[in-house]
């Protein structure tokens, strides 16, 4: 025998205890959500690891930028020989310049949003994304600002797109120095929204067939909705929509509209404006006057 009997028993006890602890935590997490013991564990862990996550994110950002620059260089080679030589000549400076240009573009987009009429009623807090869920089951990100910066649960969060910003989610839980944001693609997310330039309103939830898309539910067949129309947040509270989001924040655009005789509602698919694979800088919105 390789291992003694006592050792075998000890091993089984350890594994058994760990499995029991995992199942207990899972049960508590399922029953309590973000409250109770599991909520405390989550907040404590997030508080401790947030500074480390921030540092790791800052360290790896140049690597990601360099990777983006390299892939851009490959494209440039295919498209334009002269551009390729210029980029090669620039070397490391090129990486830095391109990264700064991208950063500037994102900052300009967020600034445009802040200066827009719709955002006038809100204060804003800038944040960087420091962690992201490793799979598509729970679509959350972690940002480097928390209650010490004025962030509260259910605050809406926007990210750059086009010449402004689009809704990306809401704050789900918060610690002193970090906050977890539930993206609008998360299966627990629901956003009450309206069609720009129309009267149709409905509930935006992730599509069950393609979780990178949204479906707009409860839009009656008599409502007029066309492909390409923008979808904005609406000011309404429903049973599924706990947080009251600000109105008129762009969410996405209608990509398909269909209806069947058997269904009393239209089937509307919406593609989000925000690129969820490129989330680095975001804005957390605060209603002016809110604590």
């Amino acid at each position: 025998m390789l291992i003694g009997k006592n050792r075998l028993i000890r091993r089984r006890v350890i594994i058994g205890l760990l499995l029991a602890a995992s199942l207990t935590l899972l049960t508590l997490s399922f029953r309590e959500g973000s409250a109770g013991v599991t909520g405390s564990i989550r907040r404590s862990t997030l508080s401790i690891t947030a500074p480390l996550s921030d540092v790791v994110h800052r360290i790896t950002q140049p690597v990601a930028d360099a990777w983006g620059w390299t892939t851009g260089l490959v494209d440039a080679r295919q498209e334009n020989e002269q551009l390729k030589k210029e980029l090669e000549r620039q070397g490391a400076a090129g990486v830095q310049i391109q990264a700064l240009q991208q950063q500037l573009q994102k900052d300009e987009q967020l600034l445009n949003f802040v200066n827009s009429r719709g955002a006038a009623a809100y204060d804003y807090i800038g944040a960087s994304v420091i962690a992201q869920a490793p799979n598509d089951y729970n679509r959350t990100i972690t940002i480097n600002v928390g209650s010490a910066d004025g962030i509260a649960v259910n605050d809406p969060v926007v990210a750059p797109y086009g010449d402004g910003a689009g809704l990306m989610g809401r704050v789900e839980s918060v610690t002193a120095n970090a906050a977890t944001v539930m993206l609008i693609l998360d299966q627990n997310s629901a956003v009450y929204a309206s069609i720009q330039g129309g009267t149709a309103k409905g509930l935006l939830v992730p599509s069950s067939g393609d979780p990178s898309q949204l479906n707009m539910l409860f839009v009656g067949v008599d409502e007029s909705v066309d492909v390409g129309q923008a979808v904005l947040t609406a000011n309404y509270r429903s049973n599924r929509l706990e947080p009251l989001l600000p109105r008129d924040i762009p969410v996405g655009k209608v990509t398909s509209v269909s209806q069947s005789d058997a269904n009393s509602d239209k089937t509307i698919q919406v593609t989000p404006f925000v690129d969820f694979q490129d989330l680095t800088d975001v804005l957390v919105l605060k209603q002016k006057g809110a604590s």
């Binding site: 199942l23 899972l26 508590l28 690891t49 996550s53 977890t180």
Partner: peptide, 8 residues
Amino acid sequence: SITGGWIG
């Protein structure tokens, strides 16, 4: 804990 998933 960091990503807000089901703990455990």
